[in-house]
Simulated assay, not measured.
Amino acid sequence: MSERQVLIVDDEFAIRDMLRMALELSGFRVLEAENIRDAYTLIIDERPDLVLLDWMLPGGSGLELLRRIKGNEVTRELPVIMLTAKTAEDNLVQGLDVGADDYITKPFAPRELMARITALLRRMPGGEHLEKLQVQDLVLDGDSRRIFLGERALEMGPTEFNLLQFFMSHPERAYSRSQLLDQVWGANVYVEERTVDVHIRRLRKALQTPDNDYSDLIQTVRGTGYRFSARGTAAR
């Protein structure tokens, strides 16, 4: 973890300075940018391991940069944590829908942010070994961190991958949003339960292809949360 590199994208020097000191004390190397243009150049040239991205930036919003990152095949797997002063749920969900892996609302404690960063990087390729799992034509290969539905490789973000891996490892049991946060995001990471719903929606979408639809494997359990189950589904 000590060799990991984080890019801070924020136009306020005081915030960048605070984040840089906290990151360096935790053993990270740090890159800084104060606008979208410089940030994207650093992403392409330096290939950071994670981006801390402010919502409001000169010359465009952080959401615009997020769309560029997630829309580029080379950078789409780059994990992004949004830094935002916006507290309206719709704004936070919008960032997650575009592809943000997490968000944290200002003001925040550096300790909480470090916990979020550590948990997110742990879920990235190169983390814990994951076994090969299969349910009908759905195959999750932990070694390569690839997922196949029939002959088709599915495109899926790191959080959705880990969520699916947990579900496939623990089928037929209902989990609350709080339990899923503890198991997939980490017990010491403070994330709103609404975040789970956004990633569940993304996961279901990823499990739909022109040839197959496995989205119904992720079942909503009213009053509880979610369950992974192949029972009752038609043979495919």
Rank of each mutant, 00 (worst) to 15 (best):
R37P: 00
Y40Q: 13
V74T: 12
V196P: 03
R29D: 05
R227P: 04
L130G: 11
R68D: 10
L63T: 12
R111T: 13
R236K: 08
Y175M: 10
L180W: 02
A88D: 15
Q208I: 15
Q219S: 11
G232F: 09
V6C: 01
S178I: 07
V139W: 01
P110D: 04
E151F: 06
V80R: 08
P158V: 14
G99M: 05
I36K: 12
A33N: 08
Q179D: 14
T195P: 00
M18H: 04
G60M: 12
D90S: 14
V98Y: 11
R16W: 07
P210S: 11
L133Q: 12
E89W: 04
F228H: 02
M156A: 08
M82I: 15
G60V: 11
N212K: 11
R236N: 10
L154S: 05
R122A: 13
Q208T: 15
N188T: 09
G157A: 13
T105V: 15
F108I: 09
L23N: 07
R202K: 15
N162I: 01
P158H: 02
V139N: 00
A115I: 02
R202V: 03
R123N: 12
N162L: 00
T233D: 10
D45I: 05
D182S: 09
A206C: 11
L65K: 08
L57I: 07
D97A: 05
A22G: 06
K205Y: 10
L133D: 01
D137L: 10
V221M: 10
R4Q: 13
L78E: 02
M1V: 08
R123S: 06
E64D: 15
Q179H: 09
E151T: 13
V184P: 04
A206Q: 08
A100Q: 05
K205T: 14
D10K: 14
R202Q: 13
R145Y: 07
L163K: 03
V189A: 08
L50N: 02
V80Y: 04
P158F: 00
E160L: 05
L217T: 05
T118F: 07
P171R: 02
K106E: 05
L25W: 05
M114V: 09
P210R: 10
D213A: 09
D45V: 10
R47Y: 07
R204L: 03
D10T: 11
T41H: 14
F167D: 03
Q134R: 13
V80I: 08
A115L: 12
G71C: 07
V6D: 00
T41S: 14
L207N: 04
Q219V: 15
P125K: 08
R20I: 03
G127M: 03
R16F: 04
N162R: 10
R194A: 14
L207A: 06
Q136T: 10
L42C: 04
T87D: 13
T84E: 08
R123F: 00
P58L: 11
F28I: 04
T41V: 14
E155R: 15
D54N: 12
R4L: 06
